[in-house]
Design a protein around this nucleic acid. Sequence first.
DNA 1: GGTCGAAAAAGTGTCAACACTTTTGCCGGA
DNA 2: TCCGGCAAAAGTGTTGACACTTTTTCGACC
Lengths: 223, 223
Amino acid sequence: MPEREQSTLVDRVTSKIFEMLLSGEIPLGGPVNEAALAELLSVSRGPVREAVKQLQGRGLVVKEPYLKARAVALTVPDMVEIFQLREAVEGMSVRLATQRMSDAELDDLLAAFSDAKQRGDGVALDVHVRIAEGSGNARVRALLCDELYYLLRLYRARSGKAPGRREDAFAEHWQILRAMKARDADLAESLMRTHIGRATQSLQALLETEAPPLGGTEERKTG
Amino acid sequence: MPEREQSTLVDRVTSKIFEMLLSGEIPLGGPVNEAALAELLSVSRGPVREAVKQLQGRGLVVKEPYLKARAVALTVPDMVEIFQLREAVEGMSVRLATQRMSDAELDDLLAAFSDAKQRGDGVALDVHVRIAEGSGNARVRALLCDELYYLLRLYRARSGKAPGRREDAFAEHWQILRAMKARDADLAESLMRTHIGRATQSLQALLETEAPPLGGTEERKTG
DNA sequence: GGTCGAAAAAGTGTCAACACTTTTGCCGGA
DNA sequence: TCCGGCAAAAGTGTTGACACTTTTTCGACC
């Protein structure tokens, strides 16, 4: 459960609350009660407050002064916004990575991808992470891997594995990697944007068919 | 000094610390001492802690557990990273705005821009804000206007007005607005990216000539 | 004189209590 | 019966004190 030994209580509390969001223990759009969480986790309200503030910074919790904090609703329009942002930033990420990764790093990435392809492993997201790390731009990496990533995980955990277009994704990733290997930054960026744009479109299609958002079961006490 | 009556103490403290960063009272790369700030501002350490955490979320302060927090160094390479991110996100911003803003809104924006041009007013940044608001994407707007904006302000305040290419900026903004009016999203995005890419290039040029970063004067007590 | 180690100092992390704000529910009046 | 206002309850905001970690300093030993 603890991803690795986290030194400070705040980090542990943050992880725990995030898990509660993933599992649905705190319903999407539901209230996030500091006191109840503090008692549940056997800690004071201070660390809970900071953890909530941190989650607020990541966009997982919304709140205004003196009003109850609420978990993000994560409606389909929300996800469309996030995917539009990802389209732009992942495009820049792969552009920079294409220019800055060494041949050795690229070969390594291609090999790892081939292996994963063999095993049928779901490391699709890892490709995006590796590219972001290869971009050499710490802010781009942090945005994609530390902020939007959490929202994606939450959405996928609660929406029932979302698109499920595994086959397409593999092919598209492969094309992107080939463009990187060919040092064609424009092509790589274009392919990446198309890749993510496809997911955006299937979301928007979902938006028109499925009116009811995926949301939590109901207004429920957090404790 | 208070932008507007802020209800909660944490917000006021956050603003105050940000001003201290802008003015240089807290040197870039210098230590951010919770206790000293608390005494200086006549508040408890709790609000200061949360304010620092918030600034940390905005990338203005870096810190790891039990170690002194430090103001961001804001080296030229840092700014290059930020501009690369901005290039991608502002591009998406103007693309979405071109698709979603109404004719009336666009005319309004064009008129406001013309007026500002007459007065020779430095509302250049406001164009970016208006476009981000017109994008209809709350996350894009928040990233550009609430997060990167603070870093830009800080950099401009401490680096001596940065590029100073006022003439070029006006012309480039005008071109962008014309593309928007023509509903040419591809052109608008392309122009915006070139516009920001120019600033990035002048930063990178600076990087090669000016080795010493702009940094703070020296390690100094915050109180 | 230099270096390793322990104690003190500085600074961050956590806690429990108190103050303020918002919401909820009740009561009286129209 | 419905509306407005008042009081209790719930929940957030703030505080000062205590615990833990890191850094610095001082002294003993080599």
